[in-house]
Amino acid sequence: MKNVRLIYKKTGRSKFISHLDLNRLMIRVLKRSGLPIWFTEGFNPHAFITFALPLSLGFESRYDVMDFRVTDLDLSYEEIFERLKSALPPDIVAVKVYEPTTKPKIICFADFEVYVECDDENYNKLSEFLNGDEIIVEKTTKKKEVKTFNVKGKIKQFSIEKTETGAKVYLCLPAGNIENINPTIIFDSAEKSGIEFDITDVIRDKIYDENLNLFV
């Protein structure tokens, strides 16, 4: 048994594939690749795959991670990479394949780029909003209660810059097993405070461990 980590990009129309559907899709990709995938040995054998950090529906990703196992120890990682590359659908692009040395549970932060369309006035308002001392957001708990809290302290890093049609907002937010902040809740809150804009794209970029070292 050999552990394999695949890094891939999920772009374009594939951002509309939900996490559950992605799971099904990857099982089919592995099957099409003809790789000797390791199956679980339970009552209902299925390909053993793990996604390091699930992605929200509608987000693109430049660095998505999937782990799986193959049964043939002699298979080279180059060979695995080539076979996966040819089996993936057009908008999901394999970046690299290697032997994992870390576990997904160490992931603590992720970078996001949020592209919005707005006029100059709203750009200024949005910039002010992000630079303010507190950003109050609403989050629905598992018990369906709506809780409000200040998310400002949770934002590790951020920046906002002007683009031709609006703004590009960069955010580094908690992500992973312990805590997750979805960037859209910050923008929902901005919208509620009367700022007008349209989100055109959300891209998740690099992911990090607790010390902001890149997760590989």
Binding site: F16, I17, S18, G58, P89, P90
Partner: peptide, 24 residues
């Protein structure tokens, strides 16, 4: 184009129904 499609899919249930681009 794809950008218009993204606009169109805002708030729509199961956007995967309308995006195409599937394998094969």
């Amino acid at each position: 184009n794809e950008k218009q499609l993204t606009q169109l899919l805002k708030g729509v249930q199961k956007p995967g129904r309308y995006t195409g681009g599937e394998l094969n």
